[in-house]
Design a protein around this nucleic acid. Structure first.
Length: 688
RNA sequence: GCGCCUGUAGCUCAAUGGAUAGAGCAUCAGAUUCCGGUUCUGAGGGUUGUGGGUUCGAGUCCUAUCAGGCGCGCCA
């Protein structure tokens, strides 16, 4: 299994563009799509001429970067165009994408040396340290894999190749072993022998016993496949039962402080489908990050100071007057939802016809009332949707605390602010945006961007190492200007990471159902909770990558909700509960042993192999910001269990010893399944 | 026109540069009636939108092109 690590670097170029400095640092970031410059890597062939040479083109000058030392990651620089205005006298923030083995993490540092060469002379030398810790503590089998790798490396060294780093993969098809390596194929050129011959030589030298390997085989064009002793695999059972709710944890996040902002819908109406998707992905991601050892804060930004709230107030006033018999016309940009009428009804009940005449007091009171009403509804809906926030930040409070003015002042000091046509502009093009942005309009009001900059500065000042914003695809054009402001003010563009969630199309009666503000007809999160159910809805949204737009067929979701795969997974859990209950009635114990000698069936071992993977799947899911990995895992685990359940009986009163071992195995499955479901906020019911 | 996302089985979607591209639903054929109705086993179904390139090896990386979605405001 390979993991992509993005390694970022900064570059300083002087006026002549002759001398440069590169400063490397590592960070597990997502691909930055709005970066104009990016560098990609490939896995080069061993011993090829350009194996140790990386080429970077900068201001039309070709710079060769020669790497030496530890060969863990290999990369080839391919430079893309970038905005010259931004990079001269500024820094380039860019990334190298490096591929490493899934299980390569150890407590050792990985380091890379770089010589920076310009016009055939070495300008300088840089070393980069990458240290990722904690994964090898995940469980014993993962640790074993580490040991096997080290052993293989020793063997290859004995055979005459120093410094070759073995990659151990986990084959998709379990028939190809528990682990496999392609090293013989890669070493073919070095040794001038056929891959199969090399593979056989390695296999002959391999110490089976010490590494709990039952069988090693050479397969296909030269893969070496390793099969672990099943007795060793059963060690995981006791480990899981001991860890219980903790199983799946790792410290891959190194306790980094992460702030995740999601949903953040205007308090002007109900949350709809798109918000539900954002809520599920955001909340699930937070749970996953926490499990992977990040220090997570969930935050909701309330846009309660802008024009939308103004429109909400005007709509409320209209409905109020309408209820009291006045002939009214709703404002053009008004809200037409039924909830506005409900608000008006409450106002009528509260004040009668006291506010029939226009007044500033009426505006203020109605505004506050409507805002509070809508916000409370959102909070309630999210709570019922199993989504919780740690912090609710109000836009208005940023004004009240003077944070917005402070932000403008800070931007002003950087020199990237200018006045034109009576408006105040931010020179965001200097930081990669495609046009400059207005901060203060000529009518002296602020744009949406300005308080949002203040908000992000505020978050950074609260001490987060990383900010993750989850936005809908309809706002993606907004990202470059926000990133530009962070780059300008903090100098560290990497601190802000934006995940874009693609749109959800609603399908009703086999065709697209357009939701409009005017008609007030939209499928709300409340509708989903009531008609589809929290678990099914959450599972459905968590199932799919946020990158692709999806269809939500409301008829299918409500009518045939049994087809939702969530029931398949939940049913597996309920079945286990049923077994445990029976066992309890029969006064059977759960065996606690290091090795479970009676668990030998193929189906049970398949389940165990799934259980072993869990901590690594969580870590992957966190690093890739991809909650749907967890759902795929749940599906695989449930399937493995159902298959086992059908083939083998757990409770057999004629063989108590075996039964009690089986119960331990089933218990471990239950714990893992429950923990996995919990990561996406889906319940693990005891019965269905 | 420019930018971002997507294009994989009839449908909805997976897939870490690796071995025969996988699941669910739907279709067909069997099994189970139990620890629990929604379970299990198998079959058919594919030129991964199209062309070119990199690579020992491409659904995945690059490039061109086609199609769908979204965004390109002194709106929020």
């Amino acid at each position: 299994m390979k993991e992509r690590i993005n390694v970022n670097f900064k570059m300083v170029i002087n006026n002549q563009g002759q001398k440069m400095e590169i400063q490397f640092y590592e960070e597990g970031t997502r691909y930055l799509h709005n970066q104009k410059t990016f560098i990609r890597c490939k896995e080069p062939i061993m011993n090829s001429p350009d194996y140790n040479q990386l080429t970077l083109i900068c201001d039309n000058k070709e710079i060769v970067v020669v790497r030496s030392g530890f060969v863990k990651m290999r990369q080839k620089f391919i430079e893309n165009e970038y905005t010259s205005g931004f990079f001269k006298n500024e820094y380039i923030s860019s990334e190298i994408t490096a591929y490493t083995n899934k299980y390569c993490y150890t407590d050792d540092n990985i380091y890379l040396n770089y010589d920076i060469i310009l016009d055939n002379t070495i300008i300088s030398n840089y070393q980069m340290n990458v240290s990722i810790q904690g994964v090898d503590k995940m469980n014993k089998v993962i640790k074993l894999q580490e040991d096997i790798k080290a052993h293989l490396k020793d063997i290859i060294r004995e055979m005459g190749c120093e410094d070759y780093d073995v990659i151990l993969e986990e084959p998709k098809d379990k028939a190809n072993g528990d682990f496999s390596t392609n090293c013989a194929m890669q070493l073919a050129k070095t040794f001038r022998k056929s891959p199969k011959q090399i593979a056989q030589e390695i296999v002959d030298r391999f110490n089976h016993k010490e590494y709990n390997v039952e069988k090693v085989e050479v397969a296909g064009p030269g893969f070496i496949n390793f099969f672990i002793e099943t007795s060793f695999i059963t060690k995981i059972i006791n480990e899981i039962i001991s860890l219980d709710e903790e199983y799946g944890k790792s410290d891959i996040g190194k306790n980094i402080k992460v702030n995740v902002e999601f949903v953040s819908a205007n308090p002007t109406g109900d949350l709809h489908l798109g918000h539900a998707r954002g809520a599920v992905i955001g909340d699930s991601l937070c749970r996953i990050l926490e499990k992977a050892g990040y220090n997570v804060t969930r935050e909701y930004y309330i846009n309660d100071a802008g024009k939308q709230i103004h429109n909400l107030t005007l709509s409320t006033i209209c409905r109020y007057e309408e209820l009291l018999g006045k002939n009214v016309t709703m404002p053009e940009d008004g809200y037409y939802g039924h909830d506005i009428i409900d608000i008006a009804k409450e106002l009528v009940a509260l004040y009668g016809d006291k506010y029939l005449e226009e007044s500033n007091e009426r505006y203020q009171i109605f505004r506050e009332f409507a805002k509070k009403y809508e916000l409370n509804k959102i909070k309630r809906d999210l709570e019922d949707f199993n989504v919780h926030f740690d912090i609710w930040t109000s836009e208005q409070s940023l004004y009240d605390d003077n944070k917005v003015d402070e932000a403008i002042n800070k931007l002003n000091k950087t020199g990237y602010v200018y006045v034109q046509d009576g408006a105040t502009w931010f020179r965001s093009t200097a930081f990669g945006d495609d046009k400059d942005r207005v901060l203060r309009k000529s009518d002296n009001t602020l744009t949406y961007l300005t308080p949002d900059i203040a908000y992000h500065i505020d978050k950074l000042e609260r001490g987060y190492d990383k900010l993750i914003d989850i936005l809908g695809a309809d706002h993606h054009g907004y990202v470059p200007r926000l990133k530009a402001s962070i780059a300008c003010l903090s100098g560290d563009i990497e601190k802000l990471e934006v995940l874009i969630i693609q749109m959800v199309r609603l399908i009703k009666d086999n065709q697209e159902y357009k939701m409009s503000k005017r008609s007030g007809k939209a499928i709300t999160i409340r509708d989903l909770i009531e008609e589809v159910g929290v678990d099914a809805t959450r599972y459905f949204f968590a199932m799919r990558s946020g990158d692709s737009q999806m269809d939500f067929d409301i008829d299918l979701a409500t009518k045939k909700s049994n087809e939702n795969p969530v029931f398949y997974a939940q049913y597996a859990h309920a079945r286990i509960c049923s077994i445990m209950k029976q066992a309890q009635e029969k006064k059977l114990n759960i065996a606690r042993e290091d090795i479970y000698s009676h668990i030998t069936g193929e189906k049970a071992i398949n389940v165990l192999k799934e259980l072993i993977d869990f901590p690594m799947v969580v870590a992957q899911s966190a690093l890739k910001r991809a909650p749907h990995f967890i759902v795929n895992y749940i599906n695989d685990l449930a399937q493995a269990f159902h298959s086992f359940y059908n083939a083998e009986k757990v409770i057999n009163e004629e063989d108590i010893e075996k039964t009690e071992q089986m119960l331990a195995f089933v218990k471990a499955t239950q714990i893992t399944l429950r923990n996995a479901l919990n990561l996406i906020g889906v319940s693990a019911p005891e019965n269905m």
